[in-house]
């Protein structure tokens, strides 16, 4: 290896270290009590980190209640072991992209992701009850399926990493990626079978998707995509019955 190569590598790793700057969630006043709704504090944190060169927003052990948050470029949400990002049970705390609601959304962002051994928990049972009540009273005109937030929805993003996390109890589908390039999802565990048809991963118009070592326990199909998505590879993914989940 030449000197230039070594220098380049050194420079690269410095860059990586710089971009990996960690911010503790508490710096932004985020509370781990499971009762404080942290939506705006987490959003403030994401916006701040994205505007200041990027880095990881790190959640340590605790329950972090939130409504919809928008992930931004060069920001990774790091859920350490025991950290649970909990979706609130009031539908009005959620919003979406083109009417598709989710706890974590990202629209036209790059180099972003969700990592760590923690959990994203949808509180699907309670949330769907709230949604049904509001529909019954006539305050929401959508169907329960239309109004139900996913755990993660990303649109037109580039270079997305979803790693290690546990995804639990969505009130509808779990995660969806539309028009994204370079998605790496690996070692995650999905457990969501509260609603009749909770789909694991939905892809459309995506290019370059790698799914590795994923455990699916979903009431609906594990993986759904069609010919609009290219270069999809699925390696060592299984459902709760041990059945392999494969690429088309």
């Amino acid at each position: 290896m030449t000197k230039i190569k070594i220098l380049t590598l050194a420079l690269l790793s410095t860059c990586l270290m710089l971009s990996a700057k960690d911010y503790k969630a508490s710096l932004f006043g985020v509370k781990s009590d499971g009762a404080t709704l942290n939506t705006r504090s987490i959003q403030t944190a994401i916006d701040y980190i994205s505007a200041n060169g990027g880095g990881r927003l790190v959640f340590y052990v605790g329950r972090y209640l939130t409504g919809t948050i928008q992930l931004k470029s060069n920001v990774t949400i790091q859920l350490e072991e025991g950290a649970i990002l909990v979706g609130t049970t009031s539908v009005y705390d959620y919003f979406g992209i083109d009417g598709v609601r989710a706890i974590i959304i990202a629209d036209n962002q790059e180099n972003t992701g969700i990592t760590g051994k923690g959990v994203i928990e949808g509180q699907g049972t309670a949330l769907v009850n709230n949604i049904k009540t509001q529909i019954q009273k006539g305050y929401i005109k959508e169907t329960p399926a239309q109004a139900s937030p996913m755990l993660v929805y990303m649109k037109d993003c580039n270079n997305v990493t979803i790693e290690q996390i546990n995804m639990w109890d969505a009130c509808g589908d779990i995660q969806s990626y539309k028009g994204c390039k370079k998605i790496n999802i690996n070692k995650i565990s999905i457990k969501s079978n509260l609603s009749a048809e909770s789909k694991g991963i939905l892809l459309s118009d995506c290019d370059g998707v790698t799914l590795v070592d994923i455990y699916f326990n979903t009431s609906g199909p594990e993986l759904i995509y069609d010919s609009t998505s290219k270069n999809v590879s699925v390696v060592n993914c299984r459902n709760e019955n041990g059945k392999a989940v494969r690429a088309k």
Binding site: A35, T36, L37, T39, G67, S90, Y92, D93
Partner: peptide, 8 residues
């Protein structure tokens, strides 16, 4: 006094 009701 605990639930943040802004959106509701």
């Amino acid at each position: 006094g605990i639930t943040l009701n802004t959106c509701s």
